[in-house]
Structures are given as structure tokens and as C-alpha cells.
């Protein structure tokens, strides 16, 4: 198993940092380009959500991002220190249209709803001091696994 772990101060500019690092880990794990695009959006949604929550509720607490991969797949976990996540809105376009345009923070509920529409395996776990959003992408059986490039698999 390979591991990358990041602790980020809850700054909007660090959402890009998270994308770059997680993408490097996903490419190293051998995920194909389509999944890498999906992971790029997923890490951005989850990290934007966590950064907004920590900045609002616990600005001194870093956002924790943990990426692990093994021959079966890649797991991404993003932990915030905000209050428990609410239920995702059912109609996303209505949620976005109703959302006020007055602030720059990612709407935590919209981000979770996008993730549930985007990623097949999403788990939201309420901890004692925040929420951990865990996503998993399987590697196809028989792929050569970590260390190969996407090009080598196609």
C-alpha cells in the first residue's frame, strides 16, 4: 500500500494544492485518464467543502487529506472540523439557484451532492470533531497496478 497524507491550512488557494498532489498520486496508482478527471473534481469538491467549514468553525485546525492505493484501487479521505453534514439537497439545480451569491464559500451540501452524483463509492462518516468524506475508485482486475502509467494500460 502507498500513502500520501496532507495537512492544509483552510485557505482557498490550498484547494489547488490538494488537486495537484492527489492527481499525482492517482496517476502513480495507474488510474486511467477518465477516472483521473473524476478524481480531480472529487478532491476539489471535498476539499473546498472542508476548507470552507474549517475556515468558518475552526480556522486553526488543518484539513486532513489522506490518499492510499493498493492493487485493488485508490481511496481518498478528506476530514474537516465542521459541524455534522446535513442531508444533500435532492434537486441540485434548485439548490444552486436558491443558494445566495453573497459569499465565496463552497456550499457544503452542494459539494456533497455533487460527490454523490459523481463517485460510485462515497461514504460520509461523522466523527467526534468533524466529518470524514471517503471516496474509493477501484482499479480493474488484471491492471498492472501502482507504478504504471495510464498510457501503458491503454
Amino acid at each position: 500500500m502507498a500513502l500520501v497524507e496532507l495537512l492544509l491550512s483552510p485557505l482557498p488557494s490550498h484547494v489547488r494544492t490538494a488537486r495537484l498532489v492527489v492527481l499525482a498520486a492517482a496517476r502513480r496508482a495507474g488510474l486511467d485518464d477518465g477516472l483521473v478527471d473524476e478524481i480531480r473534481l472529487a478532491v476539489s469538491e471535498a476539499t473546498s467543502r472542508a476548507v470552507a467549514l474549517n475556515a468558518r468553525h475552526a480556522a486553526e485546525v488543518p484539513v486532513r487529506i489522506r490518499v492510499t492505493d493498493d492493487p485493488t484501487g485508490l481511496t481518498l479521505a478528506v476530514t474537516d472540523a465542521g459541524p455534522a453534514a446535513g442531508p444533500a439537497p435532492r434537486d441540485l439545480s434548485a439548490g444552486l439557484l436558491a443558494d445566495s451569491d453573497g459569499d465565496d464559500d463552497a456550499d457544503p451540501d452542494i459539494a456533497l451532492a455533487v460527490l454523490s452524483g459523481l463517485v460510485d463509492e462515497v461514504d460520509v462518516e461523522l466523527g467526534t470533531a468533524g466529518t470524514t468524506v471517503t471516496m474509493r475508485w477501484p482499479l480493474p482486475p488484471g491492471s498492472s497496478g501502482p507504478g504504471t502509467t495510464a498510457a501503458a494500460q491503454s
Binding site: 480531480r40 476539489s44 473546498s48 444552486l96 443558494d99 451569491d101 463552497a106 456550499d107 452542494i110 455533487v114
Partner: peptide, 9 residues
Amino acid sequence: FLDSTGLGV
């Protein structure tokens, strides 16, 4: 790249 923050804008 575009995420839901950009959609909100």
C-alpha cells in the same frame, strides 16, 4: 477545470 464553486458564480 470547473467545480461547484464556479457553477455557483
